[in-house]
């Protein structure tokens, strides 16, 4: 969305409300950001949809595209989890509560929640890409929205238990009879009570029913590559399988060119695509 007053390239001012490590190896850090101006917050929440992303900006370092990991009902803040991989994300990791930074967004389409109403949701995530699925689950699981959807099944895999994000909520969801949750780690660990194995294998094992269901997959490319066919084998049609894509981005508004997938720009036309849509696009990922 474009505001009349500000250039779409100019970030809005934000402050860090909370900053904390999300993984035991400190590679993942969560930032909860508050808006400096109420008008920016209003504009944000007027259009925000789970599955959208923002560009976080550290002056002098650059911008980094990160999926929003919070639901609107949680409050007047936006949550992101950043993996420390490059110069911007390492600058983001250095931020403490009270520090200033910039944000542009929300960007992209987000999940087609209206189309999913009354359907069973199978949410499949891997690694730190789970962030937007976390926002989705929080949204759907909220009492105001829960009635709009059918059965809720969650599959979440990480390499190790220490890399599992949002542990507090995940633990609570295990106790919750309202949803079915399957957690997995890649290699066995002592005292691990859940699945051991890769996400595609866990999905085949759990075998969620495709009847009146949509599946949404977010994870590293290798996980997505093998999970999509697993879902097809389980009987999900390509129209009912969704994934969120990532590519290098700069502008976030379909101008700078680099995130194109054929004629589509992931930043503007995505990042959420159905498998049916992807099948019609070149495999340029």
């Amino acid at each position: 969305m474009q505001s009349e007053a500000r250039s779409p390239y100019t970030p809005i001012p934000m402050h860090v409300l909370h900053a904390y490590y999300e993984s035991t190896d400190r590679s993942l850090k969560t930032l909860e950001l508050s808006f400096d101006h109420a008008a920016d917050s209003q504009a944000f929440f007027q259009v925000f949809n789970p599955g959208q992303f923002c560009l976080l900006s550290v002056a002098g370092k650059g911008e980094s595209a990160l999926g929003v990991a919070s639901a609107a009902w949680e409050g007047d803040f936006v949550r992101f989890t950043a993996q420390n991989v490059g110069s911007v994300t390492s600058a983001l990791h250095a931020l403490k509560a009270g520090d200033a930074l910039g944000m542009r967004g929300p960007m992209g389409n987000g999940f087609p929640l209206d189309d999913w109403k009354s359907k069973n949701l199978v949410i499949i995530g891997g690694g730190c890409a789970f962030s937007t699925l976390y926002a989705l689950t929080k949204h759907v699981h909220h009492e105001d929205h829960r009635g709009d959807y059918g059965k809720l099944t969650l599959v979440y895999g990480t390499r190790t238990s220490g890399l599992c994000m949002y542990k507090h909520d995940i633990a609570a969801w295990h106790e919750d009879e309202d949803m079915e949750i399957h957690q997995a780690i890649d290699v066995p660990e002592d005292n691990w009570l859940h699945h051991v194995g890769y996400v595609p294998d866990v999905v085949r094992q759990v075998a969620p029913s495709p009847v009146n269901a949509v599946a949404v997959v977010c994870g590293p490319p290798i996980m997505t590559k093998f999970t999509l066919p697993a879902l097809v084998d389980l009987g999900f049609s390509p129209e009912n399988i969704f994934t969120s894509l990532e590519k290098r981005m700069k502008c976030g508004i379909g101008k700078c060119g680099r995130c194109n997938l054929g004629p589509k720009y992931i930043c503007k036309d995505g990042p959420v695509f159905s498998l049916a849509e992807l099948n019609a696009l070149p495999a340029d990922l």
Binding site: Y9, A59, G60, K61, G62, E63, K250, C251, K255, C256, G257, R258
Partner: peptide, 22 residues
């Protein structure tokens, strides 16, 4: 061709776009 890169110039305290190429 219209692709551009966005980079920060720390000393000039600005963010600029430059022509880029696929």
């Amino acid at each position: 061709c219209f692709c551009f890169d966005i980079v920060d110039e720390t000393q000039r305290k600005q963010r600029v776009r430059n022509w880029d190429t696929c």
